[in-house]
């Protein structure tokens, strides 16, 4: 019953997003796309953080991998957006494989510090490889060409057109996260989080599983980065900075860890709240920080976690 309700809720969400895409104005579409892209980033991140229990502070590197992959592909190889996205995701995946290989040997704070160090390494590489990455000016002028399907073309230039590509990937990301959560693979990840020693004694090579979770989340970060470049038409080094790596951490904490809806709600609150606060004051950081504090302290386990607990609590009383 619960799963049916959940399916219905996601069905309604998608229907609502389609309607929004057809009827929303340009700014609403833009903000919605930013929320969906952040949600893809956070959904992938939750597989590692919420599910497997590994807190990374370096996922901006993979986001940047995807972003610079798309931008470089567009400038030097091919202009087809799907091809560029593929290049971006591949670059991010490769990067995640290499960095993950070294990081998953450790856990907890050691893991977090290692990912932070690798992330900042990627940041300084991007900053300093000026011939390739454009230094701090970044890569500018990534356009959105139409997707060529032989018989007909799908234009993406306008916000209202690109929106549906983002929505498609957003849906795909939710599906992937859902599949992982309901699979034996996902169960093992949860087992590693709860008690890695016991899981290891069950004959599971936990390092490989951790690496797999790391790479999947890195690939999804890359996808988000690639879509972000197509949306903003540029890639700048700050997206690989630790301050950007902390976005999905905050989103996870706001929304709720190890839930499917958590990253979605968290992204909505994170982007929407900032936009709202900025409308009232130019000194938005203070107010944004205070509201975040209230949410983090008031909704322990995130917005979604708290709501689920409330509902579960009521059900217990009833039964």
């Amino acid at each position: 019953m619960i799963t049916n309700k959940a399916y219905m809720a996601f069905g309604l969400l998608l229907a609502g997003l389609v309607v929004l895409g057809l009827a929303g104005d340009r700014f609403l579409l833009y903000i919605s796309m930013r929320i969906m892209i952040l949600a893809i980033f956070a959904l992938g991140f939750d597989i590692l953080f919420g599910r497997t229990g590994l807190l990374s502070f370096g996922h901006g590197a993979f986001y940047a991998g995807g972003a610079y992959g798309v931008a470089l592909c567009y400038m030097h190889l091919a202009k087809d957006p799907l091809l560029c996205l593929l290049a971006g995701v591949l670059l991010a995946t490769g990067l995640a494989l290499v960095i993950g290989f070294f990081c998953v040997r450790h856990t907890e704070i050691y893991f977090a510090m290692l990912t932070l160090a690798f992330g900042m390494m990627v940041f300084s590489l991007i900053w300093n490889l000026r011939e390739i990455t454009g230094g701090d000016d970044g890569l500018v002028g990534v356009g959105r060409q139409a997707i060529n399907l032989g018989l007909f073309k799908i234009p993406l230039r306008k916000e209202s057109e690109f929106y549906f590509l983002v929505l498609a990937f957003f849906t795909g990301a939710i599906w992937v996260a859902h599949r992982i959560r309901t699979s034996p693979f996902g169960l093992i990840l949860a087992g590693i989080r709860e008690n890695d020693r016991r899981t290891e004694f069950a004959g599971v090579n936990i390092r490989n599983y951790r690496l797999a979770a790391f790479v999947i989340s890195g690939a999804m970060a890359g996808l988000a980065g690639g879509l972000g470049v197509l949306l903003e038409s540029n890639a700048t080094p700050h997206i690989s900075h630790w301050s950007h790596s902390s976005d999905p951490v905050l989103v996870g904490l706001i929304g709720g860890l190890n839930t499917l809806a958590g990253p979605l709600v968290g992204s909505l609150v994170f982007v929407g709240l900032k936009e709202l606060v900025m409308r009232f004051t130019t000194y938005w950081m203070l107010f944004f920080g205070v509201v975040l504090l209230i949410i983090l302290l008031g909704f322990r386990g995130g917005v979604v976690g708290t709501l689920v607990q409330r509902l579960a609590g009521r059900r217990e009383v009833r039964s």
């Binding site: 700014f27 930013r34 970044g138 903003e232 700048t236 700050h238 997206i239 936009e275």
Partner: peptide
């Protein structure tokens, strides 16, 4: 940050 500048510009105009 570039993405924030773009969001601001889009907010201002749209």
């Amino acid at each position: 940050k570039a993405p924030d500048a773009i969001q601001n510009a889009r907010y201002f105009v749209d």
